[in-house]
Simulated assay, not measured.
Amino acid sequence: MSEVGRHRIVRPEDFAALGPDNLEARLLGKPATMARRDVSRGAEVSLLSARKFWHALGFPIVEDDDAMFTEADQMALMAVARLVREEELDEQTALALTRAFARTTDRLAVWQTQLMAEALAAPGLEAALDEADARAVPDQAAARAAARKLADMADSLEPLLIYAWRRHLTAAISRMLADADPQQSSQGVRRVVGFADLVSFTSLVRRMTERQLAVMVQRFEALATDIVTAHGGRVIKTVGDEILFVTIDAAPAAAVALDLVETMAEDDLLPDVRVGMAVGPVLSRLGDVFGTTVNRASRLTSVAPGGGVLVDDALASALASVSGFETTALRRRTLRGIGEVTPSELRRAAGGRLGGRAPGTVAATSAASTLTDPRKDTP
């Protein structure tokens, strides 16, 4: 391997250690034999444009004459250049779209390689929080096996990636059209924003191995994502012990919050969660949400009790006419960076039905069986 700056550059011969399985050739079509000059010449773009595209993809600087590229790189560059030449997109927008693909697929690829390595190293580990193996990365045998497995499955997984992207693109366009209301506030679209985080996570970090923490966080993320999506919400991001979600309406947000609290309380492997929610305008950028509403929800989460849900006064008012839930105003308090607020505690109303769990909300550990046996229906 050679070095460019601080980054290690992987050459085709480095894959020879895996024996007959040349991963680069299998995943990209051919080994990397082309320099940037070859790619830019073949795509009929300048070296500067080729360099911008490579950076937008999220890869490190390489010398123009380093044989780091394949025909797949050239075809991708040609596709982006064609959009610009035909004036479908300006260069800045084309690079921004490339960057969006890159950031998303980078996280996806890392996530999938870790999942595969863990599955091959210790099947069923997700249910064993007391796993003794403290390794945070797979051993060499598991890494090699995962590499071969993913290379073998790439062609089968690719259609799923395209399908998921088109499905989410359809949903995103639909939301954009629905939000394109001339009466919408210039400050942003209106959303209910919620944060849920694991209680006492810092103390758990000190007592558990990295592998055990990874298992716990993975379980939390799987359960929380299932609950949010079951009620029609969207998971914006997860950061270790915390998940950020949004919904359009108040009732689904309340159902999400209470399901999160109840599900984690019933799970023997996870600590309690606390949830804070607020409603108001949000700014959506780069797949994330920003603004005072987001900050208010975050601050409410930090003061919520374990196993409890706090909402701001606007959300409490919106829920007042929704059956199945009830709120109780608490003492007025000052939240850092927000000011004075009157939070309300959210609970299910006695005998309420609309606050019940969404059909199909199941534990992540049992959901997989229905994929292989259609006779097993989810409760």
Rank of each mutant, 00 (worst) to 15 (best):
T229D: 04
A230F: 09
V239Q: 12
R211F: 08
F245N: 00
T170E: 07
L244M: 15
R207G: 01
F201N: 04
L204D: 02
G232W: 06
R234V: 04
D197V: 05
L244E: 04
T209A: 06
T209P: 04
G233K: 02
R166Q: 08
T238M: 07
A180G: 10
G233P: 05
A196R: 04
I243T: 07
M176S: 09
Q183G: 14
D241V: 00
G194C: 07
V228G: 00
G194W: 01
V239S: 15
V199N: 14
S186D: 08
I173D: 14
E210C: 07
I243A: 03
L169W: 12
I236F: 03
G194D: 01
V228N: 01
F220I: 04
D226L: 12
E221V: 13
T238E: 09
V235G: 05
R167E: 15
V192H: 04
Q212G: 06
A180N: 15
L223G: 02
A178I: 05
G232S: 12
F201L: 03
H168K: 12
F220H: 00
T209S: 14
A214F: 03
V189H: 07
A171T: 08
F201P: 05
K237E: 14
A171G: 10
F201Y: 13
S186V: 10
H231S: 09
R175E: 15
Q183F: 13
I227R: 00
V193C: 01
W165I: 15
V239G: 07
T209C: 09
A196I: 00
D179N: 12
V217R: 11
V217L: 13
R191L: 04
D181V: 00
Q187P: 11
R219H: 14
L169F: 14
S203L: 03
R190A: 05
H168Y: 13
L177Q: 15
E221I: 14
G232H: 06
L198A: 02
R167H: 13
L213P: 00
L244H: 07
D179E: 14
V215H: 01
Q184Y: 10
Q183N: 14
L223H: 02
A196Q: 06
A224Y: 02
A222W: 04
A164D: 08
Q212V: 03
Q183I: 08
R191I: 03
V193H: 00
M208F: 04
S174R: 07
V215T: 13
E221L: 13
A230K: 02
A171N: 12
H168W: 13
M216S: 09
L213W: 10
V235A: 07
T209H: 09
V228T: 06
Q187D: 14
T238C: 11
E242P: 04
I236H: 02
L204H: 07
G233S: 05
H231M: 08
Q218N: 15
D181R: 05
A180I: 03
V217C: 09
E242K: 00
D179C: 09
I227E: 00
R190Q: 15
Q183C: 09
V189S: 10
V235R: 08
G194M: 11
A196L: 06
T225G: 12
V215I: 09
L169I: 11
W165N: 11
